[in-house]
Write a protein that binds this DNA or RNA. Structure first.
Length: 425
DNA sequence: ATGCTCCTGCGAA
DNA sequence: CTAACGTTCGCAGGAGCAT
């Protein structure tokens, strides 16, 4: 038995915890660079604000309807997420942290009666100790738990935020599956939903009963797993230990268009810095780095996109070495005269630092370099991020993303940020 | 015929 | 005030190449 715990309108709920005046009000949170809507409260949904809409398209609408708009504040959301996950870890034997606002938990060892009781306790505890409302779905597989959660969120009033499918008979469960359209199943996106429509497969129930071979052929093995999980046969394991990343990406749109190579270099140096920090954090080294730059596909004018992959003979996790390599790549793909809107890097071919193979060339990270990185990381950890950084990262950084909602509310939020650090527990 | 790497498509939050 | 559309990850399978 598996439960999926999902925080309601997570980013908005985080803002509400520190600003009770937002309760019962329409609130939205924007993506990086104040680009698109990524979180909405029920009140905002009721106004018809869609997920993923570019903010500039609805800015006037929000003003007219007194919608509270926030730039994303990931330091806050990350902190709230850790609190929620810690409580879940204490109340469940096994947990898979699936995303910033979601976790699967195993309910093995509980009787059906106990499960229902326990789920209610989990919900109450999280809400009481963090102020974040959650919805919980329970099923015999991950896909069914997801589906249950989806219904819990959709009908919060009737369900009180909890849907438990395991007490249901097969036929009662099928009645529910008939109400779920295939596109709403976890793992079935837009393209797969279209393919299924063509097969006259419209609901979760249709998919559950459809011919195995045909599903395998049209949706590949992943589609088959989903089908099997709908039937109650687990195919997807609970991944309780986080596996190290196979690639680490850092990319961002700029606050304004950039033309000059030196500005792009600064941005790239910053990307390498954050990615390399993550790399060292999981005790890995990378053997190649991909650099890319691009113009805005949404703005008319000459378009340019290019990327290049640079390799190291033996891997590295030393920031300055990686920056140097990234610069060499950037200089190869840079073309003058374009208005660049985004740059990014990907660390690839990642291996565990310990079992790194000796190479013929003596290009490994030296003890000295490793010690330098350790020291740098430890200083930034205790003194705050980017206390110490490479000059290549620049000091001005005028190209940084926009995240200044100029509303009066926003300018008064320094105290809120301070509250986050001194946890009220 | 088989095995490898690279790239693309898709889905998730 | 301007101009104005996000980021990060994994997996499957086909393409292309080598053996």
């Amino acid at each position: 038995m598996i439960a999926l715990v999902d925080c309601n309108s997570f980013f908005c709920s985080c803002e509400r915890v520190f600003q009770p005046k937002l309760l019962k009000k329409p609130v939205i949170v924007l993506s990086n660079n104040d680009g698109c809507v990524v979180a909405r409260t029920d009140e905002a949904k009721a106004l018809g604000i869609k997920m993923g809409v570019p903010y500039f398209q609805i800015k006037d609408f929000c003003q007219k309807n007194s919608v509270f708009v926030y730039s994303s504040n990931f330091a806050l959301y990350g902190d709230m997420s850790r609190r929620v996950m810690r409580i879940l870890s204490e109340l469940a034997p096994e947990i898979e942290i699936y995303s910033i606002d979601e976790a699967f938990i195993s309910l093995d060892g509980f009787s059906p009666k106990q499960i229902s009781e326990h789920i209610h306790r989990i919900k109450e505890t999280v809400e009481q100790e963090t102020g974040i409302p959650v919805s919980i779905g329970v099923g015999s597989t991950k896909v069914l738990a997801k589906l249950a959660n989806y219904r819990a969120k959709k009908n919060k009033l009737q369900t009180k935020g909890i849907v438990n499918l395991i007490e249901l008979s097969e036929s009662a469960l099928d009645l529910i599956l008939k109400e779920v359209s295939v596109g709403d199943i976890w793992g079935i996106g837009r393209k797969s939903a279209e393919k299924l429509q063509r097969l006259q497969v419209h609901t979760a129930y249709d998919l559950k009963l459809y011919d195995d071979k045909v599903i395998q052929k049209t949706l590949s093995i992943t589609g088959r797993y989903i089908q099997e999980e709908l039937r109650g046969n687990p195919c997807l394991d609970l991944e309780t230990i986080p596996t190290p990343k196979k690639q680490i990406i850092s990319s961002r749109s700029f606050g304004r268009g950039l033309f000059k190579l030196e500005d792009l270099k600064e941005a790239v140096a910053n990307h390498v810095t954050t990615a390399a920090e993550k790399l060292r954090h999981q005790n890995s080294i990378a053997h190649s780095i991909l650099v890319y730059i691009r113009t805005s596909p949404f703005k008319k004018g000459p378009q340019y996109y290019n990327s290049i992959t640079m390799s190291l003979h033996s891997g590295s996790s030393v920031t300055n070495k990686l920056i140097k390599l990234a610069f060499a790549g950037l200089e190869k793909i840079y073309r003058e005269g374009f208005e660049y809107k985004k740059a990014g890097i990907i660390l690839m071919d990642i291996d565990d630092k310990a079992h790194t193979q000796l190479s013929f060339f003596n290009t490994h990270d030296s003890d000295k370099e490793n010690l330098l990185m350790e020291t740098l990381d430890s200083i930034n950890h205790t003194e705050g991020e980017s206390t110490l950084k490479f000059a290549a990262c620049g000091t001005n950084q005028f190209w940084r993303m926009l995240s200044q909602m100029k509303s009066p509310q926003y300018s008064t939020r320094w105290s809120d940020l301070l509250q986050v650090n001194s946890s009220p527990e």
